[in-house]
Design a protein around this nucleic acid. Structure first.
Lengths: 238, 238
DNA sequence: CCTATATTTTGACGCAGCGTCAACTTTTGT
DNA sequence: ACAAAAGTTGACGCTGCGTCAAAATATAGG
């Protein structure tokens, strides 16, 4: 009984070992560089053993992506609790996005890979459901902030638009900018010198467009976001 | 001399043949499905001959992406000329984006592939420059509209922000939304039912945030954009 | 402790796809 | 007509994925 559980612990540990080993390869050398043979060699296990844990290479990437999505969701939740003022809470979430893509660039990179068809298609139903749930929970955190703002009278969501659709605008803005920053060959060549600051400004302007109260000047926004940012990685950086 | 040019025509025709054959495979069956062996077989040429035209598979994708970027740039240019009113011109460009991703979904899909590291890295310097130029020209069309708006007194670009950085906001918003629509597993599951309309609304709100004159109601915006859309594919749908 | 059964590990193997290159064919120039 | 240049070919080497029968190890009963 004891030996069984020891063996089983050994096996489940190995799953985390595989992921821990795979992540840096994936992040620093790209999807191509991650090969099952190489992974097996570095693990000092045979390739077949890897395939006992993951049915194919894509599942490994998907598993890593889930870890990353979880991290982002946690950051969102933390961020959304940093203030009682709805507009500040939304700003904190924006701040979390910035931090996530900058300080946890590896995680963002892995998340991006998941969006590239092949991996998504080949990953198991089970994991696809997990991923969707993760996205839904992140969305509901932000939509919750919007609903609270409406309830508090800070914001009016246009009729025929759901809270989620309002969130979708901010999501597109921040996601789009970070995706472009990561993938557009030399943004500065086309005249965009400080894309992150620009997007904070656009986000601020969009909030103003929706007349999200209380109004704050952009300078105040900047310093407030800086403060909020410091509090997002609180006790546990994980 | 005549035979030479016949031969040379034959060769340069083949390049277009390759691309024409590759595109549907790439679009409908994905990057994985596009193999050099298969392409050679369908071309009824030996694989080596393909490699006389393109040094590797990635270059073929890059070449296709350039065609797509060119199409988008042309649509932008057309769109930007449809009205004398700066705000309408910007709306027309937004409309061009929507049309591009919807009616020319294959092109958008190929463009997306280029953003996924591997292809970009392995494509030749020459093509990388071409791609950058294409992006720059598209950007300068839109930035031109912004500058005209400023000159006409319709718009004030915030100090410390360039026209390009202002464009970057709209670019992020539309690019982000289309990327999410294409890649996010079931947006409607998370509560976003009409993402395209939502983004048009967000774009409209962002313009209002920048007080881009003349103000138009959203309903007017919708019908105007519909009209503009019909005029973007004018004489030559290419 | 031994043996039978279940579980886990292994790595050689089949297969597919990329890119190469020496041999072969066609075109060009004289 | 012939030699040199240009173009074409497909077999080959290599890498990487995923499989599976055989070997190793663990579990359980006597």
């Amino acid at each position: 009984m004891e030996t069984l559980s020891r063996k089983q612990r050994e096996i489940s540990d190995r799953e985390r070992q595989i992921l821990a080993l795979a992540r840096p390869i994936l992040v620093h050398e790209g999807y191509q560089a991650l090969s099952m043979d190489r992974l097996a060699a570095q693990m000092e296990y045979a390739k077949g053993t890897l395939y006992n844990h993951f049915p194919n290479k894509e599942e490994i990437v998907a598993a890593l992506a889930i870890e990353s999505l979880e991290l982002r969701r946690k950051m969102f939740e933390r961020a959304s609790l940093l203030s009682p003022i709805s507009r500040h809470r939304m700003m904190a979430i924006g701040c979390a996005c910035d931090l996530y893509t900058q300080e946890c660039a590896e995680h963002f990179a892995v998340e991006q890979m998941l969006r590239n068809s092949v991996i998504w298609q080949k990953s198991s139903e089970k994991r696809q459901v997990l991923i969707q749930q993760c996205e839904m929970r992140a969305m509901s955190v932000v939509a919750g902030v919007v609903r609270d703002a409406v309830a508090a009278g800070d914001l009016t969501v246009p009729e025929h638009m759901s809270a989620e659709e309002l969130v979708f605008g901010f999501w597109s803005l921040t996601y789009g900018s970070h995706a472009l920053i990561a993938s557009s060959p030399s943004l500065s060549e086309v005249g965009v010198n400080d894309p992150v600051r620009s997007i904070r400004y656009h986000g601020w302007t969009l909030m103003n467009g929706y007349q999200w109260k209380p109004f704050i000047s952009f300078d105040e926004t900047e310093s407030l976001m800086h403060q909020l940012g410091e509090r997002i990685f609180g006790d546990e950086p994980n």
